[in-house]
Nucleic acid binder design. Structure first.
Lengths: 367, 367
DNA sequence: TTGTAAGCGTTATCAG
DNA sequence: CTGATAACGCTTACAA
């Protein structure tokens, strides 16, 4: 391992002062073009790399930001992080990812540990306990942005998707297919799964479901709401609650599945009850997450613009770091319907099912 | 934002020298218990946080390591990173994740950029081009470990799973079920997908497939090997090559799917051809990746011990950082069979299929 | 046991 | 335009 080349080395080799080297390598105006060229050449030939540490110590900024990545929920945040990474890199910041990974104390504890990490700010993803994290951030004076739709109390600029409007899109699509008995499969947020906080997004998606029914003049039927226990455990084969519902003999012709990750088990349960998707039951999910394309049939779903959300988080965070004021409120992103096989038109398919309305065309986007 | 509290502040408040404060806060022996207590109390009350930067500048080590996370292949590396993060944290290191995320120049370029990042070493995951990365690491004198089974040339200590032995396990399991016409569904590594390098792991898994056939005295049938184009694109609904194969009228009663991520489309294709899994065709995958539990039926597969691999990578890297010698060779981890529904015993199922041998019991592990 | 002081590699502020 | 030089906050000889 060759010893590290420092500014002093370059300065000696180029026969100029260290200050000049620093200026030449940076974008300072007060250097003659000739010296700049020469210094740069020497620096390159010596294999000089600036020490980020020394620079950070001097300037007080690390040009690095952190993102705290949640423990549960199977990696929907991955595209968010990739996008954030890219956005940060574009403005010369690098991004560190800190998985929660079962850490005791959750995100707040991680922020606490960030005290020792050279970082200028943090993006917290999926944080139901914004109060705790906020306190930790204040204590170490660390700017923060949240990407989250679980917490009712917003103590950071918080980015999320329009859950209510998205859910409405989903259910309107089902209605446009002529479906009328539309079940809502929801995660049942119990005390044990506190990773999902107040379950705000579930409430909102439920409201969107009702919005769509109301607009179409379809009566809301409480019994069509199915809350599933242990909802984000993907090793589950079936949803007991859905099984119970189907066993009562209720007929459903569509299902809005409030999270894509629940779709795999839902499809298995339907199949086990002899129901075909999309012939007998049309399904729309929510998130446009990896699960949506792995299941069979592939899932029509509501896309959350994860990439945009990641980029915007970085943008807001950098503004905060630069001392600009950023409103503490929710920043919501528009969702869109992505059509796949789980809602192929019933009338085009073999099964001659009851079909009362003409499907009205809706403004959907092809996957 | 309160100005940052430094050692000097604490020293003043506690009425001792800075050196004493430093010693008291660290684990130095040469401090009286009384002063230590007092200093710590003062530090806490002032909200003192050490500056990682200053410390790094002084000591020359960051106590941070990086992991370069691949672009393709749908997040199988996630458990690796989580485990590595945890292992690093346990010894007081923190871990930064650097997604490749379409960066031009791939991992090598990322390593290059690491020159400006405060990190003591790097774990590169899934790097077919070890030569390029090696060169970059040398240039900036950065210790590195690879987790990878795609590259034939090993220029780092390289961690991987026992692909050949794992594949053998998979196929032996199929044979123990009485299956004899066992197709091998493989990724076709073309020039366009250079993320998968030499495709070493595919060769090894193929060898394991043949090992199992040989031991059982089953003739190898070239036509049962199916190479799929664009293999890691999960949006694909079907494998054209598998369709072609089935259309020729060849009868297969089992399939070894050389990567779990390919299973979803394979299942759809089989289903489209009227073949039931596991009644008509038993399937075993490889990786025990998220896809294995999302598909229907859930996939019997070969588990790669991702967590152990992540931990071990950290262990080796820290050794290298501490100047210890670590052999540049492959470090292989044992795999295991995880049984799920895709290989439920055919004879217990409805379909009365041809069945010649008693299934021999094998030492498998329940999921 | 404690304090003083010398750096670590930069950048910024001065004079020249 | 350029060169000394003083920080930045910490650890660690060395001295007391």
């Amino acid at each position: 391992m060759p010893r590290k080349v420092t500014l002093a080395d370059v300065s000696r080799a180029a026969e100029v002062g260290v200050a000049t080297v620093s200026r030449a390598l940076g974008d300072h105006p007060d250097v003659s073009e000739a010296t700049r060229q020469r210094v740069r050449a020497v620096a390159r030939s010596l294999g000089y790399r600036p020490s980020a540490t020394a620079r950070a110590l001097r300037t007080g900024e690390y040009r690095a930001i952190s993102v705290i990545v949640p423990d549960a929920g199977w990696g929907w945040w991955e595209p968010v992080v990739r996008a954030a990474f890219k956005a940060a890199a574009e403005v010369g910041y690098y991004l560190m990812a800190h998985p929660v990974a079962g850490t005791k104390g959750g995100a707040a504890a991680i922020v606490e540990a960030l005290a020792n990490v050279p970082t200028d700010g943090v993006i917290v993803i999926g944080v139901p306990d914004q109060d705790g994290v906020r306190e930790a951030c204040d204590r170490i004076a660390l700017p923060a942005i949240a990407i989250d739709d679980t917490s009712r109390t917003v103590r950071f600029p918080t980015i999320s998707a329009q859950n209510r409007e998205g859910a409405r899109l989903a259910v309107e699509h089902l209605i446009s297919l002529g479906r009328r008995s539309i079940a809502l499969l929801r995660p049942n947020i119990g005390v044990e799964t506190d990773n999902w906080g107040d379950g705000l997004f579930i409430d909102h998606r439920t409201l969107g479901y009702r919005d769509a029914l109301d607009s179409a003049g379809i009566a809301f039927d409480e019994s069509l709401i199915i809350d599933c226990t242990d909802p984000f455990n993907e090793t589950r084969k079936h949803w007991r609650e859905l099984e119970a519902e189907l066993s009562t003999g209720v007929r459903i012709d569509a299902m809005f599945c409030a999270a894509d990750t629940m779709a795999a088990a839902a499809l298995r349960t339907l199949r086990a009850h002899g129901l075909k998707v999309p012939e007998d039951v049309s399904i729309v999910g929510f998130d446009d997450e990896r699960a949506a394309i792995l299941v069979d049939p592939q899932l029509t779903t509501i896309r959350q613009p994860y990439e945009e959300m990641g980029c915007y988080a970085v943008e807001l965070l950098l503004r905060k770091i630069q001392g600009e004021h950023v409103d503490i409120r929710r920043y919501e992103f528009v969702t869109e319907l992505v059509r796949r096989s789980s809602t192929d038109e019933p009338e085009r398919l073999a099964k001659p099912e009851a079909q009362r309305n003409d499907p009205k065309p809706v403004g959907v986007q092809q996957a």
